[in-house]
Design a protein around this nucleic acid. Structure first.
Lengths: 234, 234
DNA sequence: TAAAATTTGTGATATTGATAAAAAAATATT
DNA sequence: AATATTTTTTTATCAATATCACAAATTTTA
């Protein structure tokens, strides 16, 4: 008899279980999950009930077995000759990706990009709720972006304590990225979503996610120049 | 005597030269270059003249030999015991990454995220110049975001022909991503910067760069939940 | 002048993830 | 009930890239 086996164990080793019980899954897999979610959400809206990995594969340009593998990490099983149940796929993915939760966050740097992101209502749909902005510029402090108030960055610590926010979105000029980060961490921030092109350093225990959209621009320019097409990765 | 040897030829094979003469360099390398640029720009502003790969490594959390390797792809040579010349590093990187060029672009979808990006003045600093926006929403057509006019999406083709713009930034709702893409391609667009979480398909000959910021959110949530820290990749 | 220290440049190795192919399971059809 | 078909699941192979270790070069210092 076989003990419940972890799907797709590599090289004979079990995939390790992290200390909170969640499986450690490859980052490329994690990055693909939102694509699947976006697609099956669409199907759900069209009242489609089942979808196979081969169907998804055809639409999204991802290998079918890759999709099956990815989903098996979440213990999502499909039925032979039927495929996956769209409804539960939406639910499980949304759940796993953390999009149904509400994560409160601070926006640090409310200039061009920062205020732009504060105006993006989609973020809240994906679980990110920006509750306050911070800046050094006196002309901005005291104003609002939409409904969101902007405070002086000197108040970061006390606002953190008052609101219990642990996520910060960083959109300051490159030259201040590191110092502002240090201050944020000192103020109790536990996760930083970095939109600057600068590679900030954070102490152990703080989550850092870099999203430098300008780097993506560089990749695009390079492909255009090179006459390289369709070599999409991300 | 040795013939001029390409740096870091792998497995004995020369790195192939692309038809425009540029070297084919690994995508991870290309993605790291903007980090180096951001850092050395800062140094340049501080009038630092030389910087070694070990110094950069310490600041950016990237392996020193990785940096040396990356830079050698661009034929940037350092001096032993001195390092690289900051000034020329800035110049060469900016040049190579295409940031000094002006690339005109259309914004398709001027809702929350789209208009947000149109307001981001940094984009032009990185070579992207959004000259017009397009939307289906009648209340938006005819208005402006900053200085940039918004047209009806039906005009996409004629505007393309009139302005010769070949890059489109896509920020429409997921469910319209594919149809809008098809229309854009048909209108003569040659490169698409996709901000939707949907994995659109483009015909061969069209460059596609996906930047789904929401996917990054998912990665961040996952790390927070898992108690995994500092496993930054991008 | 010579040795030491530091840094670049380069090759080898190991790891990781994608791809392709094969097997197994479950359902529908005859 | 048996067979065929579709789909998931598994295994094996391959390619890409990061990591590690070392050699060559050059400046600094004794």
């Amino acid at each position: 008899m076989q003990v419940e086996k972890t799907a797709f164990a590599r090289k004979g080793t079990m995939i390790e279980t992290r200390h909170n019980g969640k499986q450690a899954l490859p980052e490329p897999t994690l990055r693909r999950l939102p694509w699947y979610l976006a697609y099956v959400k669409m199907l759900d809206a069209l009242h489609v009930e089942h979808v196979s990995s081969t169907q998804i594969a055809k639409k999204l340009n991802v290998d079918a077995s890759q999709i099956a593998k990815d989903l098996s990490f979440l213990n999502i099983k499909g039925k032979t000759r039927i495929g996956y149940e769209v409804r539960s796929l939406v639910k499980e993915l949304t759940d796993f990706l953390g999009f149904k939760h509400r994560h409160n966050a601070f926006m640090i740097g409310t200039g061009s990009l920062g205020s732009a992101l504060m105006r993006d209502v989609n973020l809240v749909q994906y679980g990110l709720n920006i509750v306050a902005g911070f800046d050094v510029e006196p002309s901005l402090v005291g104003t609002k972006v939409g409904e969101i108030p902007i405070y002086d960055i000197a108040e970061l610590g006390e606002r953190q304590r008052a609101l219990g926010v642990t996520i910060a979105v960083l959109a300051v000029p490159v030259e201040h990225a590191q110092e502002v980060t240090d201050r944020a961490v000192q103020s109790g921030i536990k996760a930083i979503w970095n939109f600057t092109p600068y590679r900030i350093k954070v102490p152990n225990g703080v989550v850092l996610e870099n999203t430098s959209i300008y780097a993506h621009l560089a990749v695009m320019y390079n492909r255009i120049d090179a006459g390289l097409y369709n070599t999409q990765t991300h």
